[in-house]
Amino acid sequence: MEINAFIIFIASIFTSNILLTNFLGMCSFLSVSKEVESSVGLGLAVVFVMTLTTALNYVVYHMVLVPLNIVYLQYIIFIIVIAAFVQLTEMMLERFSPVLYYSLGIFLPLITVNCAILGVSLFMIIRNYSFLQSIAFGAGGGLGWLLAILALAGIRQKVRYKFVPKGLQGAGLSMIITGIMAMAFIGFSGIVVIQ
């Protein structure tokens, strides 16, 4: 696939937003979108982890799994790599940058098992991206996820002051909002194709 890495980066933010087109990473998306402040923290943590684990998994896949002919183990290996990476990052942040830890680090355990992160690593393999393309895809995917959770948090902050029927309060209304947002994002589709 010869697509410019920059196009992949832009496309994964808007046209093929990992959350709004693939609906991955929904659980933390729904649970931490009550306030803009904390959603930005979680979003930035996702950007960071997604970019680096995609790069890491690219290296692991092409340097370890392919030579050993065990690509069928990619799921389990990717999960282990992501979990270990997140754990290590949390430990380092807590030790060396308390400020960053209290704004981003506390969200790290939440995204250890975020499927969007595993999803990006798996898509990168399916779509045969190069290393540069993968990094662009990882960073763009993270930013796209940040954009989506930021939008939802903004809307939910407004909704807090409005009357919501009992049955729709909380997750119910969030799902509907997410659905409408996803439909809005369809407007971008077809501009660029990256898969």
């Binding site: 370890v64 050993l68 183990l73 389990i76 290996i77 282990i80 790599v81 270990a84 290590l88 430990m91």
Partner: peptide, 14 residues
Amino acid sequence: AIVGGMAGFLALLL
């Protein structure tokens, strides 16, 4: 062996 080895390596690292 490979899965165990990798998991063990990462666990050791942690």
